[in-house]
Design a protein around this nucleic acid. Sequence first.
RNA 1: GGGUCGUUAGCUCAGUCGGUAGAGCAGCGGGCUUUUAACCCGUUGGUCCUGGGUUCGAGCCCCAGACGGCCCA
Length: 495
Amino acid sequence: MSAPEDDIIAHRRRKLAALRERGEAFPNTFRRRHLAAELTARHGATDKAALEALDERVEVAGRVMLRRVMGKAGFVTLADPSGRIQCYLRGADIGDDAYRDFRTLWDIGDIVGVRGPLMRTNKGELTVHAEQAELLVKALRPLPDKHRGLADQETRYRLRHLDLVANEDVRRVFRVRAQVVQALRAFFDDRGFLEVETPMMHPIPGGAAARPFVTHHNSLDRTLYLRVAPELYLKRLLVGGFERVYEINRCFRNEGLSPRHNPEFTTVEFYQAFADYRDLMDLTEALLRHLLAELSLGDSLTFDGQRIDFGAPVPRRTMKEVVAEAAGVDEAEIAEAPKLAEIAKRLNVRAPAGCGWGRLLTEVFEARVEARLVQPVFITGYPAEVSPLARGSADDPALTDRFELFVAGREVANGFSELNDPEEQALRFRAQAELKNRGDSEAMHFDHDFVAALEHGMPPAAGEGIGVDRLVMLLTDSPTIREVVLFPQLRAPKR
RNA sequence: GGGUCGUUAGCUCAGUCGGUAGAGCAGCGGGCUUUUAACCCGUUGGUCCUGGGUUCGAGCCCCAGACGGCCCA
């Protein structure tokens, strides 16, 4: 009645036991000197006779992905971090004992090391002709299907190590992710930004409207919150005289999981003194072009079957403009709350009871416009009511000098000219605190320490946050955030 | 939180009208000295997600739940 997997594992354990009996079963003495991709790059075109004449000895190591035994000779295909390389093993070359091991102890999934000269087979494949072959790691559990890989999404996320072994395109996504982060650093470093690390545990959760994770520090006997955004600390650094700073790291929000939301996610947030939101829109465009160039993507990409074009300057449109357009009315008709409420009702948009004009406008925007913003576009003119940390617009007190960048119907970046008037900031916090008292769980706390920091004088500045996960999704055509986060959060597994 | 689809061998998947649960790969045994998802012969392996119900009989129908996907909030 033993389950088949247990049967497979039992067989492999017996093989491991045989290996243990003769000495070190997990040796760490083999030193790989060559990677598969190097060898194919160097000798992809060298013909059979030339390779034989060269007699170039190589040492490769990797996981056995394919195995073909034909009596007194056999082939294995090894996978190393660079790619795959085939090896040819023969009793006459590696010795009868080693050959018997190969036949009786090696399995697909094991990690092995092979030494010998390069050759080309009759069918033309570059191959290491083994003179020595050594089993380095016995894998006790079997690999997924050797050619169809691992397809079950749940298993892929829960056992990401297997997903990575089995699926080349998954490895590619995470290499691109690393490239993106590197390119971001290079971009900001080149422009004189200082990379900093600010606290992830906050005494008051601030910088964004979101529910935080709560934790407790024992020896301080203090409630702490995992940060929902680094904003208020980065601005303190502006006060301190670091006038260009950026931070690439995790934020945490205690909200639902979805194809676009993981409870922990990565942002790059940056602040620049003596700049305003228009400067940051320019900078953001330069950043996008930099990323596309670093990834050799040209000036457009495909996401979810749609062509996204970054060749032209990114248009800048106001929220009022696009909402009026979507509602099929004149901008003047959405300038007052009562009229806007009627339009929202007509469009089937529900807003929290008693909310003001600004919140209402934003709700209509999010419900009826956002998803349609496929090509890159900056939306400006965000209401002050939903932007408690942004500088008010000089020409309209109801609005702020804020923008968000939308691509493929998704918010990718959020930036604004910073509010550096401490008294105005205190008023905004007070309004948030009142909302919180009336039951808005996402409203911000009044952060007196932050206001006190502003009272020491923060230079005029602008700041922005970009969702790194969403950026990587866009650049790798990944439909969900789980495809770009190595170990996404899932419910506790079934037992 | 609501709707909806899914869960069958280690992996990838079939499973008809409700009538003894299948294939390929992997594994095991045998053959094969340049193979290519190697091939040929033989073969092991099942809590059909869980628990109830209907039925002479349930992988299949009904109810509840778990986990996952998608949509909505």
